[in-house]
Amino acid sequence: MLIRRVDEDDWPIVKEVRLRALRESPDAFGSSLTREESFAESHWRMRVRTSATWVAVDDAGESRGLVSVVQEPGSAEDDRHVVSLWVAPEVRRQGIGWALLDAVVRSSAADGAATVSLWVVDDNASAVDLYVRAGFTRTGERQVLPRDPDRTEERYVRHTDTGGLTGRPAGPAAG
């Protein structure tokens, strides 16, 4: 599996993978398929231009995963925020989630970030497991999920100075 950072001209790939993610895992994201299906090309280009984004591509050239990282407004200058992490169901637990997170952590460290953070919905146990195993820790900071007030999410954080995801367990990893 190749993890490749995309640029603005790759917007059709990002759109394809993101819409598939929203179709197959609608409860995992803060947005909806209906909302993002209406985005014009200019919006997709802007999204890729303003957030570092990687895709996981298999040997047949099929995109199997996606992750983006942003400097979230209002957050610490040296924190980067993970958004949109998703791995196709048919290739989960093969280390792709690890590889995408590794790309984010390494890039964030090179960009001067001391931490990488993310929000996880409480009932997404597989995502919580991946993030904790990848070195993220709970902060105790919680909020109601903006699009569903009956659900809550918690912020997790990971320091970038630990040399990547070297704490990866042996064998197939979650992802």
Results as ranks from 00 to 15, higher is better:
F29T: 02
S31G: 06
S32R: 01
S32K: 00
L33K: 03
L33F: 10
R35I: 13
E36P: 00
E37Q: 14
E37S: 11
F39C: 00
A40H: 02
S42Q: 04
H43E: 11
W44L: 00
W44V: 00
W44I: 00
R45I: 10
R45C: 09
V48R: 00
R49F: 04
R49Y: 10
R49T: 11
T50N: 13
T50M: 09
S51Q: 09
T53Y: 02
T53Q: 06
W54M: 08
W54P: 06
V55F: 08
D59T: 11
A60F: 12
E62M: 07
S63L: 07
S63C: 15
R64F: 13
R64M: 15
G65P: 05
G65R: 03
G65L: 03
G65D: 05
L66H: 00
V67H: 07
V67L: 10
V67R: 02
V69G: 14
V69C: 15
V69T: 15
V70Q: 12
V70L: 14
E72W: 07
E72D: 12
P73I: 13
P73R: 15
S75C: 12
D78I: 03
D79Q: 09
D79W: 08
D79L: 10
R80V: 04
R80L: 06
R80I: 02
R80M: 06
H81M: 14
H81G: 08
H81S: 14
H81N: 13
H81V: 12
V82Y: 08
V82K: 08
S84F: 01
S84T: 08
L85S: 04
L85M: 11
W86S: 02
W86T: 05
W86A: 01
W86G: 01
A88C: 09
A88I: 09
E90T: 11
E90W: 11
R92Y: 12
Q94T: 05
Q94G: 03
I96M: 07
W98E: 03
A99V: 12
L100W: 02
L101G: 06
D102W: 06
D102S: 10
A103C: 12
V104D: 07
V104Q: 09
R106N: 13
R106S: 13
S107E: 15
S107F: 11
S107N: 14
S108W: 14
S108Q: 15
A109I: 08
A109C: 11
T115H: 15
V116F: 15
L118G: 13
L118A: 14
W119N: 14
W119K: 10
W119Q: 13
D122G: 15
N124D: 14
N124G: 10
S126K: 13
S126E: 15
S126F: 06
V128C: 09
L130D: 09
Y131V: 05
R133Q: 06
A134R: 00
A134Y: 00
F136V: 01
F136Y: 05
T137D: 10
R138V: 07
R138Y: 08
R138I: 08
E141Y: 02
E141F: 01
R142G: 00
Q143M: 15
Q143K: 15
V144H: 09
L145P: 03
R147N: 09
D150G: 10
D150W: 03
R151E: 01
T152V: 11
T152H: 10
T152W: 07
E154G: 10
E154F: 04
R155F: 03
Y156T: 14
V157Y: 04
V157H: 02
V157G: 02
V157F: 04
